[in-house]
């Protein structure tokens, strides 16, 4: 009886495995344009959701851009990522791979003042949400809680905008927020819109 159950289980496992192979092998999607571009926003989300499952998150500045290529390919194999997820994460890491500018030479302007037309909430959901969370309380260890009454949002706009524009490492946090959250396309106007949204949504 036991051997019958075992045989059934093995048959089911074999059938499932075979079905998986048949379903996945014919899929096309091999990136012919190497390294194919990924999506920054999806990448930040995939990075936050996948990489911390096994190990402490590594900051984008830990490796050079070319080193990230082999590293994310390695992690694609290790973590069972799809090719698209891997490319998204690579785009996020490479785009975020810039060091915070030292405080004594910070720019007071983040570039163009004109915004992209996106609302602060839309930009937050694209660029910031992976680390700061939908509730603003921080989705990753070490990320500040915006809803904290005496927390980060008590700082003046100029201070916060400077940190957003140039990148910032919170005390005690193992990794730094990259300049403009890693999205260099954001203008000063965009940053102002995001800050406005932060204050409206999470400020006390």
């Amino acid at each position: 009886m036991q051997s019958t159950h075992k045989a059934i289980l093995k048959s089911l496992a074999a059938a499932g495995s075979l079905s998986l192979i048949i379903a996945l092998l014919p899929k096309t999607g091999l990136a012919a344009d190497y390294p194919a571009p990924g999506d920054f926003a999806r990448g930040s989300k995939a990075w936050a959701e996948n990489c911390g499952r096994c190990h402490n998150l590594r900051g984008a500045n830990d490796l050079r851009d070319d080193q990230w290529i082999t590293t994310v390919f390695h992690m694609r194999v290790r973590a069972g990522l799809t090719g698209q997820e891997m490319r998204d994460i690579l785009t996020f890491l490479q785009s975020s791979n810039n060091r915070p500018i030292p405080a004594n030479i910070v720019r007071t302007s983040a570039g163009s003042v004109a915004d992209s037309g996106l609302s602060g909430q839309a930009i937050y959901n694209q660029t910031c949400i992976a680390c700061h969370g939908a509730d603003g309380k921080g989705a990753l260890p070490g990320v500040p809680d915006f809803t904290d009454e005496g927390g980060r949002l008590t700082k003046p706009d100029a201070h916060l905008l400077r940190n957003m524009a140039n990148g910032f490492q919170s005390p005690g946090s193992p990794m730094a927020m990259p300049a403009k959250g890693g999205n260099p396309a954001l203008s000063e106007g965009d940053l102002r819109n995001v800050l406005k949204y932060l204050r409206e949504a999470f400020g006390t």
Partner: peptide, 30 residues
């Protein structure tokens, strides 16, 4: 590792056992 398509990577050689999670993903000391 041959990246066959976005959903399948073919590995040939000596690999860590994929049974469970400790051996294949968690054993490095860091």
């Amino acid at each position: 590792d041959y990246f066959f398509n976005d959903y399948v990577t073919v590995l040939a050689g000596k690999f860590l056992s994929p049974v469970g999670q400790f051996r294949q993903n968690l054993h490095p000391s860091w």
